[in-house]
């Protein structure tokens, strides 16, 4: 690729609007593009795209929005999007390609890098670019979050997947101007070899764990499924959601969609109240964006106290009911 230019964001939509992770990527893309004195483009694909999604992308900093509407995006989302993105990258030769480390992005990022024959910085929480030729440098958690690796990509395009909630979304600015370019790629049905047969929601009603401002999390130390009732009540009182560690889900005390951590959900609430969670790095990898962590745990040496702002060293069986009762009084009194 002789002359590369720009930062390309592989976008995602959610309920017809731009997905939060894509807004975060656009913020990062803008700061990288500023250094390069280049432009930011985003590519969006769906069976049907709403005009709002493209408008969102411009408001968050895209100069160009490539849109692709195709039935295969619904039936075989990853393969269809990968085919489109590969084509856009080969034609537009961006310097950097940013992908969200989401379910789809986790497949698309490596797929794209291997098709292009370049390296991939996977699941990054920091991304910098000194100069165009020197390469992209990224920091990514490894060994379940115990350590960090600083990695460099030296061959363009620099492809990186970025962990959701690792970057703040930029200010939304509806006065920004941008161009929406509809692409009409002839996607052959042969690109779609994995077909979605069925999608089913298993999420409980109420606040989504990923979006909750307050999260109450339970760990193995709770000893069984029953105490989660108390956690649910507390979360409801605070307008929040309940989560759990992987051990709790593996034990079947709560369903897997409660799982917070490396292979579970990533949360970034204002307040994360942990009960009998030891704070293993694999769990903390899913809540490093939490602004205030509170720990109720009887073991003063457990890792959670290294991550918490406030802590109580106590048996949860005694501390939690008194805590919940006081919270109730405080919330009632306004």
């Amino acid at each position: 690729m002789s002359s590369t230019s720009g930062v390309l964001v592989v976008g995602e939509t959610q309920n017809g609007r731009l997905a939060p992770v894509t807004a975060e990527l656009l913020g990062l893309a803008r700061s990288l593009a500023r250094g390069l004195q280049e432009q930011v483009a985003v590519v969006l694909g769906a069976e049907k795209l709403s005009p709002e999604a493209a408008a969102d992308a411009i408001a968050y900093g895209a100069e160009t929005v490539y849109t692709v509407e195709h039935a295969l995006m619904e039936q075989s989302p990853v393969e269809a999007m990968l085919a489109v993105v590969e084509r856009v990258v080969r034609e537009k030769t961006p310097t950097v390609v940013l992908v969200g480390k989401t379910l789809a992005g986790s497949d698309l990022g490596p797929g794209l890098a291997f098709r292009l024959g370049v390296g991939l910085a996977q699941d990054c929480i920091e991304v910098t670019l000194d100069s165009k030729e020197k390469g992209l440098v990224a920091v990514r958690p490894v060994y379940g979050g115990v350590a960090m690796a600083r990695v460099a990509l030296k061959r363009m395009p620099y492809v990186a997947t970025v962990r959701p909630k690792a970057f703040d979304p930029p200010q939304r600015d509806t006065s920004r101007k941008g161009e929406v370019v509809a692409l009409n790629p002839s996607l052959d049905a042969s690109v779609a070899r994995v077909r979605v047969l069925e999608r089913a929601s298993e999420e409980s009603a109420g606040v989504r764990l990923e979006d909750a401002r307050v999260v109450v999390g339970g760990g193995r130390g709770l000893g069984g499924p029953e105490p989660f009732q108390m956690l649910e009540e507390l979360a409801k009182l605070l307008g929040g959601a309940v989560g759990a560690s992987r051990a709790v889900c593996d034990a079947g005390w709560v369903p897997y969609h409660y799982q917070i951590g490396l292979t579970g959900k990533t949360i970034a609430p204002d307040l994360y109240i942990t009960v009998a969670i030891s704070g293993a790095s694999q769990h903390m990898a899913g809540c490093s964006g939490a602004r205030n962590i509170v720990a109720i745990n009887k073991d003063r040496d457990s890792n959670i106290f290294k991550e918490a702002r406030f802590g109580v060293v106590a048996d949860w069986k005694k501390a939690l009911p008194a805590f919940a009762e006081t919270v109730k009084e405080l919330v009632k009194s306004g």
Binding site: A113, V118, G119, L120, A121, G135, V137, V142, V146, A147, M148, A149, R150, V151, A152, L153, K154, R155, A295, F305, K306, E307, A308, R309, F310, G311
Partner: peptide
């Protein structure tokens, strides 16, 4: 294809 420059353990700054 990816150059590993450094592996490090992040410092814990929080003071509970």
């Amino acid at each position: 294809a990816v150059e590993l420059q450094e592996l490090f353990i992040p410092v814990q700054e929080k003071n509970v």
